[in-house]
């Protein structure tokens, strides 16, 4: 069973706020989903060496400079900027 405290800790890691009034409902939801995930917890599987899902290896690029974006393009979608920098103001 996942507790309220655990939900809060997880939410903190995920940078999500959980309003007090939603905590009960969310904990219940999570417990239901986790119980569902738990159906594989009891399955015995032998450990294996790591292997890529798609079996590929060594996809590499050469060390050659490619044109990038202009600062204008980099910042185009930002809500707040100051000249060429993204900005997080102290408060808003």
């Amino acid at each position: 069973m996942v507790t309220h405290e655990e939900i809060r800790a997880i939410a903190n890691l995920a940078k999500l706020q959980v309003p007090d009034e939603e905590l009960d409902g969310l904990t219940e939801d999570m417990n239901e989903i986790i119980a569902f995930a738990d159906t594989i917890a009891s399955v015995q599987v032998e450990d294996e060496a790591y292997e890529d899902v798609n079996g590929l290896s060594n996809v590499l690029r050469e060390d050659v400079v490619q044109p990038g974006l202009s600062a204008e393009e980099v910042l185009q979608n930002a809500r707040d900027r100051d000249e060429n920098s993204f900005v997080v103001k102290k408060h808003a």
Binding site: V2, E6, I7, I10, A11, L13, A14, K15, L16, Q17, L26, D29, M30, I33, I34, A37, V88, A92
Partner: peptide, 24 residues
């Protein structure tokens, strides 16, 4: 700023899956 943005910007189902993913 970050956690408020995310809580207001993501819908319930997305938040639920992010939480589950963070948990596992």
């Amino acid at each position: 700023m970050i956690s408020k943005t995310r809580s207001e910007g993501f819908g319930k189902e997305v938040q639920r899956r992010i939480l589950l993913g963070t948990y596992v």
